[in-house]
């Protein structure tokens, strides 16, 4: 533990008490805020689901495998992103860019599989306001939460591409890579809750 006088000195002005740059602090604050948006959506979902004991559970083993594959892509892209940040920190810009490209590929794969899944569900008759499995709110919640998440993934990809390009031309620093990475890991983190709460809790079991 830090001793008390040192702690007081940290807060006495002239420096960052948390020893983080504004950029990183700002991104963390944004992440905290955004986490609450998702938290409120999840709580809304939980509230509605509590009121409907007959909530549909349509996901068969195929769907779960697909969702697990998506989880794999996203987790792996997060790992490559972490490596990219480490490389950028060491000043190895080209390795950092390479790993960022890998991250983007992982994200794209996630989006593609996700889009295929949406298409499959829509072909089966699912829409925002109705579905063939019962309570219409099921697909309402599903499309809203996963849609919000997809929008975050897509914007994350844009951010990564911009930062990677800038890094390549030495217009960005390791700090920028790190902050973009924080956002990407957050997107991954949200999926760690979507996967069990939306998919695994709606598994078709015999």
């Amino acid at each position: 533990m830090t001793s008390e006088p040192a702690l007081a000195a940290d807060w006495s002005g002239g420096k960052s008490p948390y020893a983080v740059s504004h950029l990183k602090l700002g991104m963390w604050l944004f992440i905290v805020g955004d986490a609450f948006t998702f938290a409120a959506l999840f709580v809304g979902y939980g509230y509605l689901r509590l009121g409907h004991p007959e909530w549909p559970r349509p996901f068969d083993t195929g769907s779960i495998l697909q969702a697990s594959l998506m989880t794999f892509f996203l987790l792996s892209s997060s790992a490559t992103m972490a490596v990219a940040v480490a490389k950028a920190r060491k000043g190895d810009a080209s390795a950092a860019v390479q790993h960022m490209v890998l991250t983007v590929i992982g994200g794209l794969l996630f989006l593609i599989v996700h889009a295929l899944e949406w298409r499959h569900l829509i072909q089966q008759g699912a829409s925002l306001f109705s579905n063939p499995w019962g309570v219409p709110l099921f697909t309402g919640c599903f499309f809203t939460i996963t849609g919000m998440h997809m929008a975050h993934v897509a914007s994350g990809l844009v951010v990564l591409l911009v930062i990677a390009t800038k890094l390549k031309h030495q217009h960005a620093t390791a700090d920028h890579v790190e902050v973009a990475g924080l956002y990407w890991h957050f997107v991954d983190l949200v999926w760690m809750f979507i996967f069990p709460l939306i998919y695994l809790l709606s598994m078709r079991t015999r």
Binding site: M1, T2, L7, D10, P17, Y18, A19, V20, S78, A79, M81, A82, V85, E178, G181, L182, H185, F186, D188, L189, M192, F193, P196, L197, L200, L201
Partner: peptide
């Protein structure tokens, strides 16, 4: 599932997002 997810989230935050290396405060 929620407990496992919290563990996963904590792992991501601690290692990928480097919280393990930030100041405790």
């Amino acid at each position: 599932l929620l407990c496992l997810s919290v563990v996963k989230a904590a792992l991501i935050m601690a290692y990928f997002m480097h919280l393990k290396h930030e100041k405790l405060t």
